[in-house]
Amino acid sequence: MGMQGDFLQLLKEQGYTLGTPTAVGTGHALTNATTILAFKYRDGVLVAGDRRATAGNMVMYDRTDKVLEIDRYSVMAIAGVPATAYEMVRVLEHSFKYYRRTQLQELSFDGKLRAISKLLKDNVPAALAGTGAVVPVFAGYDLEQGSAKIYFYDILGAEFEGVEYAVSGSGSPTIRGILHYLNTWGDQPLNQLPEEQAMVQALRLLTSAAEFDSATGGVNREASLYPVIKLITGAGVQTIPDATLKPLYESQVVRYV
């Protein structure tokens, strides 16, 4: 019933199903590889993602946005099959709004996490069939506790809290090690980085991922193509414009060796 403010349930009553399992036919390369990352910095959490969508060894699109705002205080970064991931984001966006408007209060942060788990669980058959695997990173600002949080998931819907950082996608093994190194032996731990330094690190990390993973798009200055970087603080989600990233990239990321 609508009294619980459960939008997914409402959709199901109307015959909706997420991700129907279909066996992958041969000759169809699915779009899936990517690099997304999230880490806590001084004022909140930074979430970043490259912009390349690939299918096999083909570049499908170079301007994908994989860091998607679900509401004013939460962001889901997606790795995996985009069709399913976008659909999930749409369901979540409507679920949170529907809950807020019917119940006249915000869905709690834990409630939001649970909603994502449930969607991933519903999606397991499609994920195992190979057509709908999604491995998201969820980051947000918990207003009640006044702190930023990061969670990452496996394709079955298990949720893990990434205390300092989380990564996902084909390029993630490269940068996971770097994040660990930076956080442990860097000049300062990640969660003390000021905003600008956090953005520089994100650009460097994605550039490194692109160096070793062909499915991750780095920065393409000729096309003025920069990764998507979003900052989530107590004031809400903020998307960093390319005009801010460009000088940072040119002054602190490019090495003319």
Binding site: G2, L10, L11, Q14, V91, H94, R101
Partner: peptide, 13 residues
């Protein structure tokens, strides 16, 4: 109010 909310959100989705 609930029927309006249901209709609006299902349609919007």
């Amino acid at each position: 109010r609930f029927s309006l909310l249901e209709m609006a959100h299902v349609e919007g989705f």
